[in-house]
């Protein structure tokens, strides 16, 4: 099924890490650092997930929404596109693209339920306006491929398709959306990195299997390192730091 990934807009528009890590000049003016930028995007990925659990949509919708949100911020500033509006709107748009439309009024209801803070409060009208701006910002490219799809064929092929490994790798893939990996790497390589980490954790010998795959193991290992680094630094991502970063956005320069 990978045949069409290689001709897709997703593949053609994969970015270099440097391009993803560019903080928009307007945000820089407000004192947003690269660290802040990453923190806010991570926080918004979590926000999307929380909202999605309320409105009950599949993980794939969440993944597509997060990919949209991350793509938006490779082109637009957080100063102009408030993440607290962009995040729910990306979920709204992704729900349509992935055939499980969620009503805007339902999202608005759960936003209020999740956050008492006025800064998160947006109305239906705001979401509908932002939907169009996001469509533009994405340049109307809406198809996103995810690692989930290749996960189970890979596990099966490697003879690792027991419940434990399936759950572990699935969870790892979920966590990769807290990073920008989906903008930089082909999804099947992200899936392989998750399998690699899981097999090391569970002490399964997959060396031969990986060798036979004929993929660039350096890339897979690099992705794995990034994921492990993320888990390492995850402890330091406190609510205080996230709020401080968001606070900067609200400041008038």
């Amino acid at each position: 099924m990978s045949a069409n990934f290689w001709t897709s807009s997703h593949y053609k528009h994969l970015l270099d890490q440097e391009d993803v890590d560019m903080v928009n000049p307007l945000d820089k003016e407000k004192g947003i650092t690269l660290e802040d930028f990453k923190l806010i995007k991570m926080h918004m990925s979590n926000y999307i997930l929380k909202l999605a659990q309320q409105v009950k949509v599949r993980q794939r919708v969440v993944a597509t929404a997060v990919a949209y949100m991350r793509r938006v911020y490779t082109r637009k500033s957080m100063a102009e596109y408030d993440p607290r509006l962009v995040a729910p709107t990306c979920l709204y748009l992704a729900s349509k693209a992935e055939e499980s439309t969620v009503q805007a009024r339902l999202l608005v209801f759960y936003i209020k339920k999740l956050y008492a803070d006025d800064k998160y409060r947006y109305e239906i009208k705001d979401i509908l306006e932002m939907e169009m701006k996001i469509l533009e910002a994405l340049n109307y490219y809406l198809v996103v491929y995810h690692p989930y799809r290749s996960l189970s064929p890979f596990l099966q092929d490697a003879g690792l398709n027991d419940l434990n490994m399936t759950q572990l790798t699935w969870g790892l893939v979920n966590d990769t959306y807290k990073m920008d990996l989906i903008l930089v790497h082909p999804p099947h390589l992200i899936a392989l990195a998750c399998i690699y980490i899981a097999s090391v954790l569970r002490e399964k010998d997959t060396t031969v299997w990986f060798e036979e795959l004929r993929v660039d193991m350096n890339v897979v290992k690099n992705i794995s390192m990034e994921i492990l680094d993320f888990y390492e630094s995850n402890r330091m991502f406190t609510d205080e730091r996230i709020n401080a970063a968001l606070q900067k956005l609200s400041l008038r320069p």
């Binding site: 349509k96 693209a97 939907e131 109307y140």
Partner: peptide
């Protein structure tokens, strides 16, 4: 047109754009 039920861009339009863009 903007759908009357207040639900933004029609899913039909979204899917049409999504596919034709690829």
């Amino acid at each position: 047109k903007q759908s009357k039920d207040g639900d933004g861009v029609s899913p039909t339009a979204i899917r049409e754009i999504m596919l034709l863009r690829e």
